[in-house]
Computed example of a mutant assay.
Amino acid sequence: MILVLNSGSSSVKFRVVDLADPTAGDRGSVERIGEPGGVPDHAAALDQILGGLDAAGITAVGHRIVHGGATFTAPAVVDDAMLAVLRELTPLAPLHNPGGIAGIEAARAALPGVPHVAVFDTAFHASLPPSASTYALDRDLAARHGIRRYGFHGTSCDIVSRRTADLLGRPLAELNLIVLHLGNGASATAIQGGRSVETSMGLTPLEGLVMGTRSGDVDPAVLSYLHRAAGLDFAAAEEQLQRHGGLRGLAGANDMRTVLERRAAGDSDASLAFDVYCHRIRKYVGAYHAVLGRLDAIVFTAGVGEHAAPVREAALAGLDGWGITIDPARNAAHAPLISPDDAPVAVCVIPTDEELAIAEQVRAVPVRRVPAPPRGPARG
């Protein structure tokens, strides 16, 4: 059994994965860590999680880490030296990595006798060519501070692209795909033969598509303009883009289900938010079609991608001339294949399973069982 942990600043989500039967296994979360009514810290959260599990059956722990920088381009066994390097990468993901590190520290203390493996959202995108990963900034400045496109949602892209190949009955190595991971965070990725060649998120998960609370693409000068015109300091201006933008900024709600309900009721703000959201997706689909040259399939995944049929329909509307069409009945039914059978480009709805992808990567890493520390002299 592999325990998969996704640790944030105020929550720990967990799932116990049995690779022989991935549908089995406990899962859940501990919320409000360090907040009134919640547990005090990540150590207490792990104690609560392990109190309901058969800890003796856990053979390894996989940790989801959002940002591995340029250092970690594959899963890495956690030890003190690795953890020290990971702490140095915190400035690249100050909103995400500290929670992941806290989760690792708590889990290592609670389960010292099993190997711990960090799996990075950014690793899948290590294959980005320099033309896609390089920002047009001063080269020395960018190199000194690690400024480049890293990309995220890599574990999702990995498993979803493999599942798409299975659905289509074709080798992944032959396929050109655009994966649209649409959840509270959202990204588009162009995948050629199983390798990421372009992706919408950049140095951080802020760039790209419109998201639940994140703005996605804006003119970088918006930050300095907000400082001059609105009197916001840099942190407050960034907060607007990170937590008060996206669907929340446009419609007052970050949940697409709420936006769709309000849109159906005639709410103009919700209608505009929906239109902006889908327009941005369509723009990226067109751009990534150009990057790939030939496109075999578009894949919708994650909460919005898997369940919001109106988003799928509107995001691809008007692309019939490119061979991209949707069958309305299949789309309404959330079928795995929502394009007509004879469509040149398949449009698929593939559930993601990031926990399973992490567990598979943990299993593939050569690790040995860690000796448990001595418990002190025997009594008697």
Rank of each mutant, 00 (worst) to 15 (best):
N6K: 06
V16E: 15
V17H: 03
D18R: 09
V30R: 08
G38C: 11
A44C: 09
Q48R: 15
A55S: 14
H63V: 06
I101F: 14
G103A: 10
L111N: 02
G113S: 12
V114L: 08
V114C: 01
V119T: 06
P129H: 06
S131Y: 06
D140A: 15
R144G: 08
H145N: 13
G146Q: 04
I147L: 15
R148H: 06
R149V: 14
F152H: 04
T155C: 01
S156I: 03
E174H: 07
L177Q: 14
V179S: 13
N184S: 15
A186S: 15
A186K: 01
E198M: 00
T199K: 04
T199A: 07
T199I: 08
T199N: 05
M211W: 11
S215C: 15
D219C: 06
Y225A: 14
D233W: 11
F234S: 03
A237G: 15
E239V: 00
Q240V: 14
R248G: 05
A273C: 12
F274C: 05
F274P: 00
C278N: 04
I281N: 02
L292K: 03
V304Q: 04
A308R: 01
A308Y: 05
A314V: 07
A317F: 03
G318Q: 06
L319N: 02
L319W: 04
I324L: 12
R330P: 00
R330T: 01
A335V: 08
I338Q: 00
D341W: 00
T352C: 12
L356N: 03
P371Q: 05
R379P: 00
